[in-house]
Design a binder for these strands. Sequence first.
DNA 1: GGCCCTCTTTAGGGCCTT
Length: 315
Amino acid sequence: MSLSSICCGNFHLLKNSIGSTCGIKFLKYHSRSIYATLFSIRRHQSRPLSTTVLARSTRKGSKQSFSNSRHLHSESVESSIEVFKQSELEQLKSLHTYNVAEKFSGVKTEWPATILVFDIETTGFSRREDRIIEFAVRDLMGGKNSTFQTLINPEKDVKNTYIHGISNNMLSRPDVPRFGELIPILLQYVWSRQMDGKPVLWIAHNGRSFDVPFLFFEFRRCKVQMPGDWLFVDTLPIARQLVDSKGSKLSSVSLEKLRERYKIPLTGSAHRAMQDVTTLCYVLQKLTFELKLTVPQLLEKSFRASDLPATRPEK
DNA sequence: GGCCCTCTTTAGGGCCTT
């Protein structure tokens, strides 16, 4: 099965599918495996945290629902809007998203993995000194709760606001979680998307050198081990296989250059996590179509975070 | 920092991520 045959062949079917916005105010953590013992709910009960899940329709077949309606409160929706600015929410609502689950309900169970496209914004390039300040992910299967994004309090000054527009004031709000507080939310979200017995395939551009080591180090700082069934694929080396009309390799395969190559419109601010996730979703679709890559072939290219040289212990 | 390419491998420059 080709990812591109699913997504690209039905590009015209993509439509506005972000119909509701839910701020998630909770963390009475649901027990599952050893992770249930790793987090104390004491910290999380003391203050409401805001992450944002964007949804449209019910997705069947996942292990559990992420909606947790008893944890949804109107005030957390309002605080999410404040964190993500009204203008940004309007932009997000206007974005297209994948609708694969609805259009290909008979096919989805054949996917060998849950495919999550993700992106992070950070305080800089050093995985050891800098921190993640924004995380966004989109499940290619689409459906309810197909996207998840949040700002993250890095507990240090942000000096590269000029890059992404994320300021210290935005991150110091009491409802913006620290990474340690985000982990149980993120784990629960991923489990809600994961199919029984199948791994999670995380996809990021330059993920091998940047996003995945950053994520790994944040988990390690919190003394939490990443789930063993989390696999990662980097679209950068895949894009380096592209050639131009003369058969020469491309001089640049940055996400921006790929967006231009495939004539993908920029509907929001570049260097914001969810915008780049949306761009990468379209790039991935075009990329896999052009290179005739299948989902199983993507899986073959996957790696575990712990296998990366960048995540080896310091000497 | 990792990866790729080449005027290479006993090296160096450029890309890619914030």
